[in-house]
Each structure stands twice: as structure tokens, then as C-alpha cells.
Amino acid sequence: MSKSALVVDDSATMREMVSYTLKQAGFEPLVGKNGQDGLEQLSGAPMDLIITDLNMPVMDGLAFIKAVRARDEYKFTPILMLTTESQADMKAQGKAAGATGWLVKPFNPEMLLQVIAKVVPKT
């Protein structure tokens, strides 16, 4: 049985590349163009993994993570921040918002899958 994932990024290419990588690992990814769109995609459906960008229009990654964590059904869902930003203060904000991990773009597909294997519980 395939696992569910949500990819939130304002770049169509990034959504495509992350989704492609996740499909290789047996995920069925949904996509969102920004935080708000990502929240609408969730709509209470069970989610094994969420990968989100930080800098996005309408709703950024930090606000998105806070909104996701506020929902009981996603309190323990692994959320990875995938962003170009690598400053310590931004990482601290991500951690405080509820991110599970911080990945700096560009990502290497193999490394991403290794990280996912660590944070997504095996079924």
C-alpha cells in the first residue's frame, strides 16, 4: 500500500522534482502551491509525510507548519522544511513552529529518501 505525502512549494519545478522522488519511494504525493493551498489539500486526510518550502506567497512555510500542527490529526506527522535558507535563526524558527527536519536546497534525491526513511514510521 502506497503512502501519502503532501508537497508544498511555489515553484512548479520543485513540486515536480520532489513528487518524482517521492513516487520512486512508493509515495502518492499531493501538491500545494503555497501554505494556504497546502492546508486545503490536507482537508483532514491522513498524511504520512509533509514537505514544505519556507518562502512562499499567500502563506509561508512557518505559518503553514503552525497551522498544520494546530490540527490534532497532524500533530505527529513528519514535516520536513525544504528551503534555500540555511541561517541558524531561520532553522530555530522552523523547529519552534514544529518542523521535524530542515533540508537545504538543492536536495539530492537519494539523501532525501534516506531522511524520509528515518522520519516516516515503517508500516
Partner: peptide, 10 residues
């Protein structure tokens, strides 16, 4: 560069 970036798990 386009080398892959760092990874940190909290």
C-alpha cells in the same frame, strides 16, 4: 553551487 545542501533533523 548546485551541490546538495545540508540536512538537519530536530
Amino acid at each position: 553551487s548546485l551541490d546538495s545542501g545540508g540536512i538537519e533533523l530536530f
